[in-house]
Design a protein around this nucleic acid. Structure first.
Lengths: 282, 282
DNA sequence: TAAGGGATTTTTGCATGCAAATTCTCAAGC
DNA sequence: GCTTGAGAATTTGCATGCAAAAATCCCTTA
């Protein structure tokens, strides 16, 4: 029996798209050059979606099997997700899925806000360059188009998330500080902390719309402040914007009805509900 | 010929200690549970020390050979250093060592300063808890002891670096914001950007002493401001402290004499000198 | 019946073999 | 002389086998 049996068919095991239609990992996995990248993004999707119980050991054979690859890329993918903070390595016992407290999510959003505030200040001081300015202005326009519609179906939710990611990425990119981008990317790895992770409270559409409109106004004022070169105001607005995002998450999360509706929002499954910050090893 | 030949003897290939006597990777590699951790830390040391030419492909066979392990852990170690930003992955062509501009180092230090400033503000607002306060006060004491000596030999330089790392880590740890710690750790991965990476300008001992005394005074005032619960002042002092650190690096780096003397300071070898930000792919 | 200890089974960690991709070599053609 | 392309030689990426560690199970004993 030769090894050329090629058990792995690159089978499309995990083609799910998330509840907001973002298709994030799916996209990344599709455009992946190597099998490892596919495996990593597929595994990330599985983990964020709660395919594995939290705080429980994750056997690499099962991962390999689920991903349709051998143990080598599966192990590499697990190592990558460990670096992202989603998995914890138990010295000689493999990996387990890490859980996050809601507090940590909110903290991550606030740290993100601080980083974005620095970016906004620098962008305002240096002046906003063409490409980044265009991207941010385009986001304002996209938001206006979306807000004209009364209903937000999955496609519009996805488009809103993409718009939001674009706006924030353009802001952080605009300052041109590479280490700032790296730190920003790092805090965005905390589940639900990234601008992509918007919880649409389908149980309370009126509340959701108010939140989206507030977001849009924030964006408008932030861009305006940057263009006016009022760096302190821009930074303050960005901080407040992040604060609101964290507050929204805190308000929306406990709504059990909501959680049932947006359970596909990647990362929700990893947030501990209720009790204390139990086994929370680094 | 069975595979149990065990070519790898866990041979102590890279037991060098750096110019400041920090023995950082050496320590980590020694206390490592698994061979992969040893390989990773040894490889990190080699890369930071400039054992491989910058911006040039790094064949995994050579890495495996140098580390005395097989290709599997070598590859895993390279993947880990990629996550740390020290190596860049070329899709189907392995890895290469990344170079950094001096500008990026200074930027990383400034971002670090912003994060530490947030930590200081929060610590001041919440009050400094026992353990962290004790660690920071101990650092003040250690610095005073060291400054009583006129000469800074390698051992004292190492102790100074450890003291500095301790102070900054305690500050960031004091606020209790885990995502802040993660972001802080991320920017510290940029070579020369961490509080550990102090360049002792042996060519100008008087200048060096002034810089160390200034550092000590900064630390004293920062701790004082936090204890006095003056959060804004604490944050401002921390920002200024980081600014000075970046300015010192900028001032010290071009000194070619110095660079020859402190070439063992990990990371110096990765900084591009002179010309433009050449091939700087993300 | 519960606890302790040892043997079996599972799982991790690492080395290695193979196929595909890339890079290198070198000569032929413009 | 310089470019170009076909074949050779590396090198990467992945699957798999083996040994050691961990987890589990089962039996003995109090």
């Amino acid at each position: 029996m030769q090894k050329s049996l090629k058990v792995n068919k690159n089978s499309p095991q995990v083609g799910l798209i998330d509840g907001n239609g973002m298709q994030s990992e799916a996209e990344a996995a599709a455009s992946a050059e190597t099998q490892l990248e596919r495996a990593t993004e597929n595994l990330r999707g599985l983990v964020l979606r709660g395919a594995f119980p939290v705080d429980v050991k994750l056997p690499e054979t099962r991962v390999a099997e689920l991903l349709g690859v051998s143990r080598t890329p599966a192990r590499l993918a697990m190592a990558a997700l460990e670096q992202d903070g989603l998995l914890v390595r138990l010295p000689r016992r493999g990996f387990r899925v890490r859980s996050f407290s809601l507090d940590e999510v909110v903290e991550a959003i606030e740290v993100r806000g601080e980083l974005e505030a620095v970016a906004a200040r620098i962008a305002a001081e240096r002046g906003l360059a063409g490409e980044h300015r265009a991207r941010m202005e385009a986001c304002i326009g996209r938001a206006e188009v979306l807000l004209r519609h009364a209903e937000f179906d999955a496609a519009r939710r996805g488009e809103w998330c993409r718009m939001n990611v674009d706006f924030h990425d353009a802001l952080v990119g605009a300052c041109g500080i590479r280490p700032l981008r790296a730190a920003y990317a790092k805090v965005n790895l905390v589940p639900l902390a990234s601008p992509r992770d918007i919880m649409f409270n389908v149980a309370q559409p009126a509340l959701t719309r108010r939140q989206l409109e507030a977001t849009h106004e924030d964006h408008t004022h932030i861009l305006e402040a940057i263009l006016a070169r009022t760096s302190t105001r821009a930074a303050a607005l960005v901080r407040e914007h992040a604060y609101r995002s964290g507050a929204n998450k805190r308000r929306n999360f406990p709504d059990i009805e909501l959680r049932r509706m947006v359970i596909e929002t990647p990362g929700v499954a990893l947030i501990r509900t209720g009790e204390a910050d139990a086994a929370d090893v680094a």
